[in-house]
Write a protein that binds this DNA or RNA. Structure first.
Length: 466
RNA sequence: GCCGCGGUAGUAUAGCCUGGCCUAGUAUGCGGGCCUGUCAAGCCCGUGACCCGGGUUCAAAUCCCGGCCGCGGCGCCA
């Protein structure tokens, strides 16, 4: 804890707080840095957080930070009253303030500085900082998450979420362009989507309900309901007690579902188009480029000829022959196998991505369409991104009788899926779709080592706050 | 859920194996002082910690047990 003296000092700090005379912030710091030619010599107002303070006696340097960058303000003795000047040297880090002064060329990293004339304090910390944004990456992730509002002031951290927003935009833009309609489905549901997976129960006016673990059934309903092609960005909830670097109990799913397809290849083509869109945006958008650079992420590699496709049966062979890893025929891939196949794609195809297709029936949910002549195998596919599963999709079974028999085949009772089966009774086009993990895409693109980094407020089996 | 490792000032760490020399070291932050161009500024002074509970022992940060939390692996998944 903080010493009583420290606390006492901070209590006093609130006195003498100035009223803010002018709230609107006209320029971001990057605007000033980039607009030097136009703005040099004019009086500007820089608002943000006090990132650093270097007091060299009769000259004081304030580094002010906002979302877009940092800028140095210089205060020399005589710039303002003696008392004011003294007070500037005593400012605490992360004080929210506005500096007024003349924008000038300067011997700084940015090549710009503000000849400070006045400091307006908008808000001061009331206790010593538990985490310093400038160096928050030196702290453990748990500590950083406990003080996320300080952590996200760090540009490296903030960049993750600006990039995440761009991925979401790429998703919306791409699928709208492709004729998909955005839908918003309920997250309070009466039954779990896929048998076996853990759900969070909620009490719904005295009845048992669950948080949706996937919009799967509803996006299919929307296709059948005449929308033909739909997409959704929404939270999904999984009550699995994972302790790994790639699982969350709540994450954002990017879902698509499309009608009138010939096969799973039509879905894969759209998924691939979306990842090309991310690549395009990441390379075009200056902020995204800066974030990728700052994270040392490197380029997103998608072969010109297309993302390679590999049937899981061929994958078994490659794992056996190239890596000496044996998986029983018809088993799902484990995480090591996914990592190895990612490596294989990188080395063989110079690709960060590889589609694994025709997953075995016993590893896929009942609504997956099986291959016509090989019912032990399905139209189900995964997309591995740098060795991690980021997308799962398939053609769905749209024939009512086949769905019922598939349920039986899985040992499930069609009665408990009646509400879903009813969708298929009145004309359902052949369709398919995919679900993608937003945080996983961001994690892989920026090469983060824990998915919690890619989630503003992560939830895991232990963490429920902040 | 199972398995492994861990928990020391606000933060990050040293010390733990081999109990006593720990009045718990270091860096940074925080508080005070000096300094006319710093840019992870520098220098001086100060402040502040052994996760919780039980046990072993003359003696526990150190050894043992339980709990909570953290990091990671597995299963499962996006």
């Amino acid at each position: 804890m903080f010493s009583p003296r420290e606390k006492e000092t901070f209590k006093g700090a609130q006195k003498g707080l100035e009223r803010c005379s002018q709230m609107y912030k006209k320029y971001f710091i990057a605007d000033l840095v980039n607009g030097l030619d136009r703005l040099e010599g004019s009086t500007v107002r820089v608002c943000g957080w006090l990132h650093n303070l270097r007091d060299v006696g009769r000259i004081k340097f304030l580094v002010v930070r906002d979302r877009t960058g940092t800028i140095q303000a210089v205060f020399k003795r005589g710039c303002c009253g003696e008392e004011e000047f003294r007070r500037i040297g005593k400012l605490r880090l992360e004080t929210v303030l506005c500096v007024e002064g003349v924008l000038a060329r300067g011997r700084t990293r940015e090549g710009v500085e503000v000849k400070g004339e006045r400091v307006e304090i908008l808000s001061e910390p009331v206790e010593p900082l538990p985490l310093e944004p400038a160096t928050s990456l030196e702290a453990g992730l748990a500590t950083r998450l406990n003080y996320r509002w300080l952590d996200t002031r760090n540009p490296w951290v903030n960049g993750i979420f600006r990039f995440e927003a761009l991925v979401a935009k790429a998703f919306r833009d791409y699928f709208r362009e492709r004729g998909f309609v955005e839908i918003f489905t309920s997250k309070i549901v009466a039954a779990g989507t896929e048998s076996g997976a853990e759900v969070f129960p909620v009490i719904y006016f005295g009845r048992e309900a669950y948080l949706a673990q996937s919009p799967q059934f509803y996006k299919q309903m929307a296709v059948i309901g005449g929308f033909e092609r739909v997409f959704e960005i929404g939270p999904v909830f999984r009550a699995e007690p994972h302790h790994t670097t790639r699982h969350l109990t709540e994450y954002h799913s990017l879902d698509i579902e499309m009608g009138f397809i010939e096969g799973p290849e039509d879905v894969m083509a759209e998924v691939e188009g979306f990842f090309r869109k991310i690549k395009e945006y990441a390379e075009k958008d200056p902020d995204a480029r800066a974030v990728l650079e700052q994270h040392g992420a490197g380029e997103i590699r998608i072969p010109r000829t297309g993302i390679p496709r590999l049937s899981i049966r061929d994958a078994y062979k490659i794992l056996e022959e190239e890596y000496g890893k044996h998986l029983p025929w018809g088993e799902d891939l484990d995480s090591e196998a996914e990592r190895l196949l990612g490596e294989y794609a990188s080395k063989t195809f110079d690709s960060d991505f590889i589609f694994i297709t025709e997953y075995p029936w016993n590893a896929r949910p009942f609504y997956t369409m099986r291959l016509e002549d090989e019912p032990d195998w399905t139209t189900g596919f995964d997309l591995l991104y740098r060795g991690l599963e980021v997308v799962t999709g398939s053609q769905r079974e749209h024939r009512y009788e086949v769905l019922v028999s598939n349920l039986h085949d899985k040992g499930l009772n069609p009665e408990s899926f009646k509400f879903y089966l009813d969708f298929f009774k009145h004309g359902a086009p052949p369709h398919g779709g995919a679900g993608m993990g937003l945080e996983r895409i961001v994690m892989q693109t920026l090469r983060l080592n824990n998915i919690r980094e890619a989630r503003l407020l992560p939830r895991d089996p232990e963490r429920l706050l902040p």
